[in-house]
């Protein structure tokens, strides 16, 4: 055994680290170069024109009585949006449970890959695509929005649920089995209490996301505030657009605050 020379010790991985660092830096630089040269980054309008336009979005709406008169109507649309998100998240949060269990390695067994495949397939689509599909399938309106939101929520919640299930204490499961409990009893007494707080916390978090995304779904005709929003934008009624954006931001912020507060108490 040779004596360690503490004064002249070197990290043996140092050279490798510098090579990696240099390599990654060069790679990123090339990527940025390509991105900037290939993208046309000129504004289509001069800076001087966009100033007044932004003012029409974010300043004027608050001082125009005809816009004020429309606020209750916009709030009505926003409530519809919030309701679409609620129905969609609730449906998704419940449907995600069986998929999550199927996808969890410690429960799904040989069929885990089925659950994982379902979840990956769902998450490959953005919501707006589901919305387009469902608008075509069930017609324009909030129902299409609810379906789009719920399917998309299954993708994310199922994945998060399956991770929660994989992290539970399996010793408790075998302990309950050792008392002679049946599979269903083990589920209710051993698994559910271990996962319920995380499940509800994730569902709430997903609700925050869904309120935001259901504001947009109306653009393709899936109900909520998105439809009047895109209509006003196309008619260049930017003051109306501005007021609707303000209402969306306000509502989303309030819901985020409430939901974050509840989630803190859950886990």
């Amino acid at each position: 055994m040779s004596q360690l020379d503490i004064n002249n010790m070197k990290n043996p991985k140092r050279a490798k680290y510098w090579w990696t660092f240099t390599g990654v830096t060069i790679f990123m630089a090339v990527l940025y170069y390509v991105a900037f040269t290939e993208t046309r980054l000129q504004a289509q309008r001069s800076i001087w024109e966009s100033g007044p336009l932004l003012k029409r979005f974010f300043w004027d709406p608050f001082f125009m009585s005809e816009i004020h008169a429309k606020i209750p109507e916009y709030f009505g649309y926003m409530m519809e949006t919030v309701a679409i998100a609620y129905a969609g998240t609730l449906m998704g949060a419940i449907l995600a449970i069986p998929v999550g269990f199927l996808a969890a390695r410690n429960v799904g067994g040989h069929f885990t890959f089925v659950g994982k495949a379902i979840l990956n397939a769902v998450r490959a689509f953005p919501e707006i695509l589901f919305a387009i599909i469902f608008v075509a399938a069930v017609g324009m309106g909030p129902f299409a929005g609810v379906l789009a939101i719920s399917i998309n929520s299954i993708g994310m919640l199922g994945k998060l649920y399956s991770e929660v299930i994989e992290s539970i204490d399996m010793e408790i499961i075998s302990t309950l089995k050792a008392t002679g409990a049946s599979k269903l009893q083990v589920l209710v007494y051993g698994v559910i209490p271990q996962v319920i707080p995380e499940f509800s916390s994730y569902a709430l978090y997903r609700y925050e996301i869904d309120v935001r995304s259901s504001s947009v779904l109306g653009i393709v005709g899936a109900g909520g505030i998105g439809a009047p929003l895109i209509l006003a934008a196309n008619q260049r009624n930017f003051e109306e657009v501005g007021m609707m954006l303000f209402i969306i931001v306000l509502t989303v912020t309030v819901i985020d605050l409430i939901s974050t507060n509840i989630r803190k108490r859950l886990v």
Binding site: D169, E171, I172, T175, L176, A178, T179, G180, A181, S182, Q185, Y189, G190, P193, Q194, I196, P197
Partner: peptide, 24 residues
Amino acid sequence: MIFQNYNLVKRSSVLRNVLAGRLG
């Protein structure tokens, strides 16, 4: 059966843990 790590469902009440002995 009794274990080194007790193996209780920590988030459930004591009584519910004890009642688990009646599941069978």
